[in-house]
Design a protein around this nucleic acid. Structure first.
Lengths: 146, 146
DNA sequence: GCATTTCCTTGTGTGGTGGTAGGAAATAAA
DNA sequence: TTTATTTCCTACCACCACACAAGGAAATGC
């Protein structure tokens, strides 16, 4: 169905939550769970992805938790979703480079998928975490006059 | 992973195949299977979707098959994928109207999903089947000056 | 030392994906 | 009228990702 899974959606909400606590002490999953209504156990698996991708820093032990690795404005929504989802390419063959399979030369639909991928990636790259926290999503207007 | 499934990708290739045989006798699944390397049995289930969506017409019995219901240029890629995939919305809550769940007012990510949905829908609507058959995908350039 | 918190491995139910099997119904051609 | 062809319909099935839950090990502040 080409749906973003809970992994991606939750990851974004978690990063937004961390962005709002920017500069404070590390935030525990217990606290995030209360605010975001995501189970702590499931969040653990999501945090391990974000940690491996170096999108967050962790502090273990008592009064530990997570914090952003950079300023909120330095994160694009794209890199967060891409890390959590594994890939944001709408078809698998776009993860090859050059994109396409061995039949790429004869594939009439490949240019369409490349274009779709571009459109999605550009839109999600245009929005950063700080903007999103302030309710400013990326501009989705398309211009015909270029 | 937000991937378009084989249903959508195959549906598009099938519609492209039919577009190339436009104006001829109905095309049998046997013939399409040979050209597109999709199993005939699996195609049957895809055709039933396209038929219910009135994207194709069918002729039963010997020397029967399928044909486009309109001119190829009258199909957007969006409506084909939307029919085959069930929905092209990147998150489920966008299929409600107004988009969003009961927490929409407090949802910081909803505007992002609405924008993403718009960007995807607009791009796929910009391309029609006739253009795709001629190797012209939709323009994926984003304009900053609007 | 104890409470807290991340980190790691493992298991598990559910549903969607990507098909296959078998046959009924329709229809053109012989 | 028979036969071959073709769509149409209802099941069925294996596999894998998703969305968790369980249990414990390791780290660390107090």
């Amino acid at each position: 169905m080409m749906r973003i899974s809970t992994k991606g959606r939750y990851a974004l909400r978690i990063m937004l939550d961390l962005a709002r606590q920017e500069g404070c002490e590390p935030v525990s999953l217990h606290d995030i769970a209360e605010r975001q209504h995501i189970t702590q156990k499931y969040m653990e698996s999501i945090m391990s992805i974000l940690l491996r991708a170096k999108l967050v820093l962790s502090v273990r032990g008592k009064s530990g938790g997570y914090r952003l690795a950079r300023a909120a404005s330095e994160y694009s929504v794209y890199e967060i979703l891409n890390a959590a989802e594994g890939s944001m390419a709408p078809v698998a063959c776009l993860t090859q480079n050059p994109p396409g399979c061995e039949l790429a030369a004869q594939c009439a639909t490949l240019p369409l998928w490349v274009g779709l991928n571009t459109v999605i990636r550009d839109y999600l790259t245009r929005t950063n975490l700080a903007d999103l926290a302030q309710g400013k999503p990326g501009d989705s207007v398309y211009c015909d006059y270029i």
